[in-house]
């Protein structure tokens, strides 16, 4: 594969919502390129007609009853919130 450049790393970082300082972009690009080049070896494996694994264990997922099992606990839900008011999570202004 071709090496990742700084702009691509910037794009990935935005996708991942991680702020990366300018001076870190280059070393990260290098690291990611090395890892992606290394995983490229999978292209040697013939996977024609092979199904993607979708379940590790040989079983189907069980269903549970469609009933309400908890709720009405706003204090518990908000217990670890960094900022809150009137049983709501507070965030910075969203409208630009």
């Amino acid at each position: 594969m071709s090496a990742l450049d700084k702009d691509t790393v910037k794009k990935i970082a935005l996708l991942a919502r991680i702020e990366v300082p300018e001076e870190k972009l280059e070393p990260i690009a290098q690291d990611l390129t090395n890892i992606l080049t290394w995983v490229e070896q999978l292209s040697e494996v013939n996977t024609d007609g092979v199904a993607e694994m979708t379940s590790v264990a040989d079983m189907s997922l069980h269903l549970r009853k469609d009933v309400v099992t908890s709720g009405e606990q706003p204090d518990l839900v908000l217990q670890n919130a960094p900022d809150q008011a009137d049983h709501c999570f507070l965030v910075p202004k969203v409208i630009e």
């Binding site: 991942a16 991680i18 990260i28 990611l32």
Partner: peptide, 19 residues
């Protein structure tokens, strides 16, 4: 939050995953 809160290896793996 995520830039400050996650360490280097975790950030690396999240970015690989996102890519």
């Amino acid at each position: 939050t995520r830039g400050q809160g996650f360490g280097e290896e975790v950030q690396r793996r999240i970015m690989i995953g996102a890519y």
